[in-house]
Computed example of a mutant assay.
Amino acid sequence: MIIAQGELVNIREVRWGDLKYLQKWANDPEVAYWARAETNISNVTIGEFRRWYYRRASSSVKRFIIETKETKKPIGSISYRDYDSVNKVVVLGIHIGEKNYWGKGFGTDAIKAFVKYLFDTLDINRIELDTFDENVRAIKAYQKCGFKIEGILREARFIEGRFHDVIIMGMTRKDYLKIANKTQM
């Protein structure tokens, strides 16, 4: 089932056949580096994804597949986690696992569509995320979508032999509504 649509992508529920893509992307060192700032990845087995698939309804991470509208090819995943029903906050995560789709607007389009889904469907008030200082492409994409840099955790992540700053970003319902009202004019 498609839960959100952008200009370039559909965001849909994960299907059994998608597990091979999730495994491939999780085990790709370059994807893992930019998605999670991980360099020492362990080989994630298909069995681990199968177990996740059966437990996903009770998981705190709600993951969806990003597919191209044109070909329906899975190219990445997007998720929210740590849903706080009292404060109405979620944490966003995204990665484009198919590297030939990097830098072509697919991630930005997916973020915009997913943000709309989160605010309109889940009735949340705030979306948070973090990334590391070297991930400039992601920071620019988040800013294009309306996220603001809210803080920096100095030298909070140790990656490949050196410390990196963690960039904390967020978007509130008020931010989203300003953007949504501008695009409707």
Rank of each mutant, 00 (worst) to 15 (best):
I2P: 07
E7R: 13
V14L: 06
V14D: 00
R15V: 14
G17S: 14
D18T: 05
K20C: 08
Y21I: 05
L22T: 08
Q23L: 11
W25R: 11
A32H: 05
W34I: 12
E38K: 12
E38H: 09
I46R: 05
R50L: 12
W52I: 09
V61W: 07
R63D: 02
T68M: 08
K69D: 03
E70M: 11
P74Q: 09
S79I: 01
D82S: 15
D82E: 15
D82R: 15
V86T: 07
V90D: 02
L92S: 05
G93S: 12
I94E: 11
H95I: 04
G97P: 07
N100L: 07
G105M: 06
F106D: 01
D109P: 03
I111M: 10
K112W: 06
A113H: 06
F114V: 05
Y117E: 06
L118R: 04
F119N: 00
F119S: 03
T121P: 00
D130N: 11
F132T: 00
A138S: 13
Q143M: 15
C145D: 02
C145L: 04
F147R: 04
F147W: 08
K148E: 15
G151W: 13
I152V: 15
L153R: 14
L153H: 11
R154Q: 12
A156G: 13
I159T: 09
F163L: 15
F163H: 15
F163K: 14
R173G: 01
K174R: 13
Y176K: 09
Y176V: 07
